[in-house]
Amino acid sequence: MDLTTRYLGLTLKNPIVPSASPMSETIDGICKMEDAGASAIVLYSLFEEQINAESHELDHYLSYGIESFAEALNYFPEAETYAVGPDKYLNLINRAKQVTDIPIIGSLNGVSSGGWIDYATKIEQAGADALELNIYYIPTDVNLPGTEVEQMYVDVVRDVKNSVSIPVAVKVSPYFSSTAHMAKKLVEAGASGLVLFNRFYQPDFDLEKLEVAPRLALSSVNTPNALRLPLRWIAILYGQLDVDFALTSGIHTYQDVLKGLMAGANVTMMASELLHFGTGRITEILADLQAWMEEHEYESVKQMQGSMSQKHVAEPAAFERANYMKVLHSWRPDPTTVN
């Protein structure tokens, strides 16, 4: 049984890759995922905004109230150095590369052009095998046209790609007017892989406190819709673009993995399932996957990749708008039923 797959030019021993999550914040967590069978690991995201915010915060509190009162000209001892900036993250990449045998993929979220390039270069230098750009932007400005937002994404990918030699994947949201065209533009800008899709904290309301509470709604086996969106788009894009696909969000079972592969994904990524039930789920899903493939006489993962893409299914229109109508139709009461 050949479970190997190719992703971003790397040969992976199987298609299960833990996506960016707090589990990769420590070497211990990384090793556990490798031991459980992960074929590569996307590290948690390095957020330029967070690094900047931490710097500003440290600066603020070391400056707050100082040089005001003769007896207390400051309130904290100055340390010789502070671990601000990307050093912690870069050290983690470095150590992860030393203690694991699987590819380590860095993940980056920048805010400035200089930041994207600078941190991407540093991640490459730290030893990452590939880089995933975690790009998101919530355009709340009513005067900001979609084309400008799209151009920002493209510029980031092009700038980063021009500064590093490791493969670059792009993790994007589904919120584009023309997702397919956007995907094409990203590929043209240099993306070797598309990671579909990013999920965001969505605000919730606390009715007792009358406060907005940002919450990340983790997916679960009970929310299969999370899988459907990337499944559709990978199925649509597969074969149209010369790029690798990673399906992220909604992967909880071996069936989800199979669906992702059949849609055209090179790898399927999971985090919520592992956060809920532990890294042992990788081992279990891999075993289930293998059993299913044996039962259904599949020889390799490659054999099924893209097998149910829009290009290869019997009913390509099923992925398009008509599909929506059909679903609605399917929920109509049977006219023959007697109440």
Binding site: N52, S55, D59, Y82, V84
Partner: peptide, 12 residues
């Protein structure tokens, strides 16, 4: 003075 607090502070 501010370098060790991070590049963002220096740039500001």
């Amino acid at each position: 003075t501010y370098g060790k607090r991070g590049e963002a502070v220096v740039q500001k």
